[in-house]
Computed example of a mutant assay.
Amino acid sequence: MSGHPAAVPGRNLTDPSRAVHDEDLEAGLKPPVYEEIVIPEEFGPVEVVVDDLKVRRFAFTQDDHGDWYLRSGPDGPRIGHAGLLANDLLQLFTLHYAASQVVGLHTEEELWFDRPVRVGQRVRLAGRYVDKYERRGQGYVVMEADARDEDGRTLVRHRGVEIMRTAPAEVAGRGSAGGGGGGRRVSDAYDTSLPLAQRLGAGSLPGTGLEPLRKEITFEQMAVFSRIGEFVTNIHDSLGTARAAGLAVPIVQGQQLVCYLAELLTRVFGAEWLWTGWLRVKFLRPVSAFDTIEAAGAVREVERDGSRTRIGLDVWVRRGDASLAAVGWARGEVPTDRPVRGILPFADQG
């Protein structure tokens, strides 16, 4: 299968410096349409270096400049953000398919966080298409992928569902808030008599709302997140491509919204999120460039099991007009008999 992974591991899926001598950076790649998809289809492995620039670039796209990422982690060495490799995993299919021809729509995302990503680490990414199906006139494809360290241990696992080659302006908004977390429908309601939680522990109560995370999303942040640095053109980083797809302006990549939720959950669980976190998100409505969002959630279940306590939540992303852009389910663990390890990953950590 034709592809263009970098010969020497770099911080990107592809090597943008090839533009110096390669006229067409996507020559030999397949058109990203449903009819071209083969099941199963393998992507990678490809090595990526988690260097300082990769971390600082991600911090810019998310406006998330916590001390763990830029100075030192909870156990000493610097670590990457929880969502640092999420888009690399999602985009693995572009090793075989022309990224700048993609006009698709991400409909579901699921992530498991098994270990922190260390700055300076080489990680190996690999994925595969495992299923394809048609529904309501649209062709869907399912990818599973993971990032592993040099010893072969998983760091982050991904499962995503995408509509291949569609009209985003017509399809967006068809989703629902049901059917994901053990069959439970997501609710954005919480007990307003309880104080909003900035962090979670074994004593957290069901019904507790989370202190929301608010962001104003700039086009520059969207474009960098969506691979403009690799000369990829899409509905997230190009006004012309967005308008050709029926959009007034570029829209935020769904995976970027997922990373805002991952930031919120890192804040409330602390370092435990990077070892025990699970997040599943469904996308309901697009978020446009220049909009504001609010990532929030509420505790639904607290289950104590010996030395560990599992906390289940509903989570959501709300647009500036107060409508829901995404909803989901999350779960993490905390120690039952002691405070959460490294609970504040930011400048005010004591």
Rank of each mutant, 00 (worst) to 15 (best):
A59R: 00
A59V: 05
A59D: 14
A59I: 01
A59G: 13
F60R: 01
F60Q: 01
F60D: 04
F60M: 05
F60P: 06
F60I: 00
T61L: 09
Q62F: 01
Q62E: 14
D63N: 08
D63G: 06
D63R: 01
D63A: 11
D63P: 01
D63M: 05
D63C: 01
D64E: 12
D64T: 07
D64L: 05
D64P: 01
D64S: 11
D64Y: 02
H65A: 12
H65K: 06
H65S: 13
H65D: 15
H65I: 04
H65G: 14
G66N: 14
G66F: 08
G66E: 13
G66I: 07
G66H: 12
D67H: 10
D67P: 04
D67A: 11
W68L: 02
W68Y: 12
Y69R: 04
Y69V: 03
Y69N: 10
Y69C: 04
Y69G: 02
Y69F: 13
L70Y: 04
L70E: 10
L70D: 11
L70W: 01
L70C: 11
L70H: 05
R71G: 10
R71Q: 15
S72R: 14
S72P: 08
G73A: 07
G73I: 03
G73R: 02
G73Q: 02
G73W: 00
G73H: 01
P74S: 06
P74D: 04
P74R: 12
D75S: 13
G76A: 11
G76H: 08
G76Q: 09
G76R: 06
G76L: 08
G76M: 04
P77F: 00
P77T: 05
P77G: 09
P77V: 00
P77D: 07
R78Q: 08
R78H: 04
R78F: 00
R78W: 00
R78A: 06
R78I: 02
I79G: 00
I79D: 03
I79K: 02
G80T: 02
G80L: 06
G80D: 10
G80A: 14
H81L: 10
A82N: 08
A82D: 06
G83A: 09
G83N: 06
G83D: 03
G83F: 01
G83V: 03
G83W: 04
G83K: 08
G83Y: 08
L84T: 01
L85C: 11
L85Y: 02
L85F: 04
L85D: 00
L85W: 02
A86L: 10
A86K: 10
A86Y: 06
A86D: 04
A86H: 07
A86E: 06
A86F: 03
A86T: 08
N87F: 13
N87T: 14
N87D: 15
N87Q: 15
D88K: 15
D88N: 13
L89F: 06
L89M: 11
L89C: 05
L89P: 00
L89Y: 08
L90V: 11
L90A: 12
L90W: 14
Q91K: 15
Q91H: 15
L92E: 00
L92S: 10
F93W: 14
F93I: 14
F93M: 12
